[in-house]
Design a protein around this nucleic acid. Structure first.
Lengths: 211, 211
DNA sequence: ATTGTAAAAGAACGAATGTTCATTTATAAA
DNA sequence: TTTATAAATGAACATTCGTTCTTTTACAAT
């Protein structure tokens, strides 16, 4: 056989991405063979090379697509917020909901960095730092105007991101909690970790309820 | 050549563990070959089988040793504390210092679970749950007596452990902060995330200063 | 209708994988 | 001093790996 009825480059490439994403997330990049990706896509391993030059290129594509999507989504969402307290509230909710909707992509983004060859690594790492910079800036502004009482902004940034991203290790759809219940809990914990007072937070909650 | 001058089973096995630990942490279980482990140990790959029956057995040995060591160390350390506030303070400091001293082991313990075959996985997972149970109990007791204001104890447990374990992704010896400076910051953030009031925490700090 | 190209199959490549085996030598016990 | 065993080597095993190549067929444009 050869070219298959109804086959289209873009469609197949998307199916390859989806297949690779799920396999990498479940078994790890190194443990997944091109034959396995091909099988899940429904084509032979050799046909993968019509869409991606190497296995490594598939991984880089997945990570880069994920990070660029994340950055774009937050840049849009962040327009809504005008104070550090609003922004932190929004960031926590955004991070949780965005990441819970993309558990596989998040997983490989944090786990497969070491499987990237140098060029890919620096590209992805730069995007990650950029994202962390958003939260750091929120914390810095909040510290400057007295909303947050925090000793070390870079550390607080990493602590909160780790706390949030860790949700992916235990959260299950149709589990005990819904995504928005989880958001509620983590918003409270994030503000607490920055020693932000009750009254200020309640003002945000009130504004949210009115809007 | 054959048996090497001065070779001893226990000594070699320990060197194999050390070599595998470093390689697994840096490259991932699947990406490390038995030949690479052998080379780093200073023996041939085939000689590894005098000490471990399979590659998988090396991984299980490393994970199990790490978790059992962690549990034993906390069970000893925890004897020192008699209130939830003392215990949380102690747990945070213990977790950070223990994990920062064993970065490679921690890394593979959280990253290579998916590379475990089922029998090994349940063994290790049980030990992890057991460790998480210690923190959960501290939080539950603190909630019961009013020290901590927390909505969901299991979630708070996972959030704090994720926050603490995430330190390993960015902390570097001889970096900007010392291990004990990091402890200080995270103790404060952990208490904050549980809405524990200043006065109570300061009592602990005072007691610590006196002792 | 013809033609150029895109997308697939399937065989094949050399290299690397985890593991086994026969063999050799050091060590410890009798 | 002899003997059993522990610890190593090095060759070899069948598989699997990522990738390349040739060939076949579907599709789009002329």
């Amino acid at each position: 056989m050869a070219r298959t009825f109804g086959s289209s480059g873009e469609v197949t490439a998307a199916r390859v991405r989806a297949a690779a994403l799920e396999l990498f997330a479940n078994q790890g990049y190194a443990a997944v063979s091109m034959r396995a990706i091909g099988a899940k896509t429904g084509i032979q391993a050799s046909a993968l090379y019509n869409h991606f030059p190497t296995k490594q290129a598939i991984l880089v594509d997945l990570l880069e697509t994920h990070m660029l999507g994340l950055l774009a989504a937050w840049e849009a969402e962040s327009q809504k917020f005008h104070t550090p307290i609003e922004a932190l509230d929004g960031f926590v909710r955004f991070h949780i909901s965005y990441h819970l909707d993309r558990q596989d992509a998040v997983f490989i983004s944090y786990m497969e960095l070491r499987n990237l060859e140098p060029e890919g690594f620096v590209r992805i790492e730069k995007l990650r730092k950029y994202y962390e910079g958003f939260l750091r800036k929120i914390i810095s502004l909040g510290k400057a105007n007295g909303d947050f009482l925090v000793d070390d902004e870079p550390v607080a940034t990493m602590a909160i991101i780790a706390m949030l991203t860790g949700i992916n290790t235990w959260f299950r759809n149709n589990g005990r909690l819904t995504s928005s219940e989880v958001e509620e809990i983590y918003v409270k914990m994030a503000f607490g970790s920055l020693e932000c007072q009750y009254e200020q937070r309640n003002a945000v909650a009130k504004a949210r309820a009115i809007a």
